[in-house]
Amino acid sequence: MKAAESGRREWGLAELVSRYGIVISFLVLFLILSFLSNNFLTSNNLVNVLRQVSINGVLAVGMTFVILTAGIDLSIGSILALAGAVAASLVTGGDAQPAVFAVIAGVLVGTACGVINGGLIAYFSVPPFVATLGLLSVARGATLLYSGGRPIPNLSPEFRWLGQGAVLGIPVPVIIFAIVFAIAYVTLRYSVYGRRVYAVGGNPRSAKTSGINTRGIVFSVYALMGGLAGLAGVMLTARTTSALPQAGIGYELDAIAAVVIGGTSLTGGIGRITYTLVGVLIIGMISNGLDLMGVSSYYQQIIKGSIIVLAVLIDRSKDRGEL
């Protein structure tokens, strides 16, 4: 009886590390940065970090859905740029439309791109890597064509508020991210749709046998990802005050990194969106903290990569026995 109890306690600690490893990594990193930099732990800076991560956050939310179905979307950086350009073109110059039209247009353009990805992947069985790699190039080209390779400046103040404004001291991009995250959290955790996303990722054949429209689910996650990339494009454009044709290059990697740091399995079926949030914050915190400490960008890249791998290592230590 005694042995069993002590055994249980030890198992409890192992369970704690394996279950919350990434959260522990986050807290440790947070403490280290607070200790090393005087300015890290200030409300201003923490708000900064949140604002800086909000765009990657929106992308990572969508990427979580995609990766849960064992997919990948490499095209989001290009979708983001295209959606940003289309949105900006509606609110530039003299005949600026209301900002809400631009937001809707951006999200629609993004969703349309996502629909192309999802259609190819779900209904024509093109591997996600290939389909989205194709759109990565196509959407970037479309952006350049649409904008003539030049920035679209002079955006209406109403539109710029989406990137620069604040409500009660909370920056608007942070509010947008919070809303997106909350909806995604409830969807994955409590909705039938969310459960089906997990089921399709865990074992598509089993999901099909269980009467789930697996193609429909796969299609929908790419459409959703596209829509969120469009929203992120609107946010980025509002923040940089111009739609830049080269915006968003490489953003897919940060979004994927955040999701993977959060412990979501690239083979699908396992993962939590709350941990994606932790992953997003870890990435944002690293850049911010290193900038604050005046670390040169050469070292920053090394440190960033190492911390990402280290965080995931801690998270995966539980599985080592099974390999």
Binding site: S37, N39, T42, N44, N45, N48, R51, Q52, L236, R239, T240, S242, L244, Q246, A247, S287, N288, D291, L292, M293, G294
Partner: peptide, 16 residues
């Protein structure tokens, strides 16, 4: 050379 990166970097310089 990026505007988006410069915003972040400048914010962090100012915070520091």
């Amino acid at each position: 050379w990026s505007r988006a990166e410069a915003i972040t970097l400048m914010e962090n310089f100012l915070t520091a």
